[in-house]
Amino acid sequence: KRDDIDIEISGRELRITGDLKEREREGVLRRSTRRTGHFEYRAHLPSDVRPDDVSAGLGDGVLTVTVPKAQAVKPRHIEITGT
């Protein structure tokens, strides 16, 4: 759930933390294969990202974090004029 996940960006580090909670089930549970508890994911970002434009979305249990890169400085053509 969105309330169970926290995303932070500090400098060049992206940090995602949260809690995986066990879902309530009816009936007899013979075996559980899902992980539960606290998790943390850290990633070092390249220096050419725009931290103010980072966005995240959660859909169908999949978290998508988009970290856009800054546009590379393109060479500018300077036209020579007559004097």
Rank of each mutant, 00 (worst) to 15 (best):
R23I: 04
K1T: 10
H44W: 08
R30Y: 13
Y41R: 09
I80E: 05
I80G: 04
H77D: 14
E79C: 03
F39P: 11
G18Q: 02
I7R: 06
I80S: 11
Q71W: 12
V49A: 04
V65Y: 04
A56V: 04
E8Y: 02
G18E: 06
V49P: 04
I9F: 10
L14W: 07
I16P: 07
V65K: 07
E26G: 11
R23F: 07
H38T: 05
R50M: 09
E22N: 06
D48E: 15
P51V: 07
E13D: 07
I9S: 06
S10K: 13
V73C: 02
I9G: 00
I5E: 00
Y41I: 06
R30P: 01
S10E: 11
V62N: 06
L63N: 06
E8T: 10
F39Y: 11
G59F: 00
L58C: 07
D52P: 15
E26S: 13
L20M: 09
D60C: 05
L20A: 09
V65F: 06
E79G: 10
T17E: 09
R31F: 08
S32H: 05
D4S: 03
I7L: 09
L45G: 03
Q71C: 07
G82R: 14
I78Y: 12
T64Y: 00
S10C: 05
R31I: 12
D6Q: 09
K21F: 04
P46C: 03
P46T: 08
V62A: 06
E26D: 13
I9W: 08
G61M: 05
V67P: 01
D19Y: 01
Y41M: 06
S47N: 10
R2Q: 10
A70Q: 15
E40L: 10
S47F: 13
I7W: 05
R76M: 15
I5C: 02
G18N: 06
R23Q: 12
D53A: 14
G57R: 11
P75F: 08
